[in-house]
């Protein structure tokens, strides 16, 4: 099915969880905030959140230094 990841089209398996999708993209979960269709998804809910057609996933990953 088709989704959008960071505003770019992406094709993913039907029914994939948000967590499995994110791991497939290589993001580091401990350093990343995820917005799904303009709503924050707490990390604890990533595994139980299933993606649907045309979902918009936005990942903001932080790197160290300040």
């Amino acid at each position: 099915m088709d989704i959008y990841f960071n505003d770019e089209p992406a094709v993913v398996a039907d029914g994939i969880s948000l967590y499995d999708f994110l791991i497939s993209t290589g993001v580091n979960p401990e350093r990343t905030v995820i917005e799904l269709n303009d709503e924050l998804v707490e990390r604890a809910a990533w595994k139980e959140t299933l993606l649907a057609e045309n979902d918009r996933v936005l990942a903001v990953t932080f790197v160290g230094g300040g």
């Binding site: 401990e30 350093r31 990343t32 905030v33 924050l40 707490e42 990953t61 932080f62 790197v63 300040g66």
Partner: peptide, 10 residues
């Protein structure tokens, strides 16, 4: 630390 940045953002 990036984990702290993430925590505050959440």
């Amino acid at each position: 630390q990036p984990e702290e940045k993430r925590m505050l953002t959440e």
